[in-house]
Amino acid sequence: MLSWLARMAWACWKPVRRYARMSKDNNSSNRTSNDDDDFDSSLADSLIWCRDLHKHSLGEYSFAIVQANEVIEDQSQVETAPNATFVGVYDGHGGPDASRYICDHLFLHLVRHARENGTISEDELRSAFSATEEGFLTLVRRSWGIKPLIAAIGSCCLVGVIWRGTLYVANLGDSRAVIGSVGRNNEIIAEQLTRDHNASMEEVRQELKSRHPDDSHIVVMKHGVWRIKGIIQVSRSIGDAYLKRPEFCLDPSFPKFHLPEPIRRPVLTAEPSICARVLQPNDKFIIFASDGLWEHMTNQEAAEIVHNNPRQGIARRLLKSALNVAARKREMRYDDLKKVEKGIRRFFHDDITVVVIFIDHELLSKTQSVPEISVRGFMDTVGPSNFSLLQGMT
């Protein structure tokens, strides 16, 4: 199946490639290497959704997404209230079921636990992740008989919450949160707040081997990439039930997800890495993004783009900068990449979600006139936020 798709992508790519080279040759004398040319291009990318600048409790935020898959697997949300902000980036794999489920349930679980305990903390975040995992596995159990491949659907999960001047970040998988802080010489310093749970990292491979000392195939190099059980790169996720519960083991009719023998213990985990940070005056913004962004730029490159450009549309600018890099890797221009349809586009880049949260410290001691709204990325749905259930918790 994959080889057939690859041949189809190559067939579609060849004429685009010829056109890209012709366009490059015909326009080389009039162009520079500045990505701003593509950012301001009159030819829009029909697969990009964005909200260029909106208010949150401590400033403003910018939100952008590009679709690559036939059905978008990235789901995301920003929830705002006068005294709190929530960001969720959910990078699905195997299908959109898990990422959609997280988008519908995780924030609600967090609000419920926060209301019961009178605060938001690392414990409430951990409980929200656990409840979301259990809820999705229950859905898998109910659906497995008629839709067995739901057992192979999962999602990375990156969440950020700003509450009472503290930033909480919880993460499963390889989406990433990066904070930009100003240094002594007014330079921007990028600091990664999350840990990548990906088998490409030596520390992750060692962690897996220590948890599974009796399994010599817990991590396998396949086609030049380290994969867990030769199948998946991320070591933590919501879902992926067949790698967590023996009851969901898939038979040989699904060779991509079939394990030669049932698992003895969970291969993946849904235990998030969580950090808390009291925001300091030199902390200026946080970038939350799925791994599709970080595949094409470093933490520092992303932070400098945010620091050196206007806030308006900055998430879209980051996204387009990554797409410029993706295009150059295939010896083409971004204007030509825009013409590649969803589905085929996945051979050039992943679905990418970017949320940039700006921090205006003078607002810390003030109650903002920020509406309690929920914005769902790409689906372009806006409605009331369940943050309203926390009224009175200040």
Rank of each mutant, 00 (worst) to 15 (best):
R142V: 09
Q67V: 05
I373H: 00
N185I: 05
R211Y: 11
D52L: 02
L259S: 08
D97I: 07
V219M: 00
R21H: 13
R21G: 01
L319N: 10
L167S: 00
G183E: 11
L390F: 02
P262K: 15
N117S: 15
T138W: 11
I102D: 04
E60M: 13
G180L: 04
I218W: 02
R264D: 12
D40Q: 12
A81I: 09
N186K: 13
R264F: 07
K14Q: 14
V234G: 09
C157F: 09
P281V: 05
E301A: 14
G343I: 04
N299C: 10
M8V: 12
R164E: 14
T269Q: 12
D174Q: 07
K55D: 02
V169C: 01
R126K: 15
W13L: 08
W4E: 13
S127C: 12
P213I: 12
G377N: 08
R346D: 09
G135R: 04
T80M: 04
K229F: 01
G183H: 04
A270S: 15
D283G: 06
H105L: 08
S388V: 14
I179F: 06
C156Q: 01
S99K: 09
F63S: 03
T80E: 05
I189T: 09
A20R: 02
E116C: 08
Q368C: 05
F285Q: 03
C103W: 08
M8T: 11
S3Y: 14
D52G: 01
H197V: 05
D25L: 15
Y19F: 11
K222Q: 11
E70I: 02
M297R: 11
W49I: 00
W49H: 00
G92W: 03
L193N: 06
E271M: 09
S237G: 11
H296N: 12
R176N: 00
L323W: 06
A315Q: 07
E247A: 12
I72S: 01
Q233F: 02
T194P: 02
P246D: 09
R316L: 04
A128H: 08
I153S: 04
L158N: 00
R376V: 08
L259I: 04
L208C: 00
V375D: 00
R100T: 12
A170F: 01
N69R: 13
W10C: 06
L139Y: 11
N186A: 11
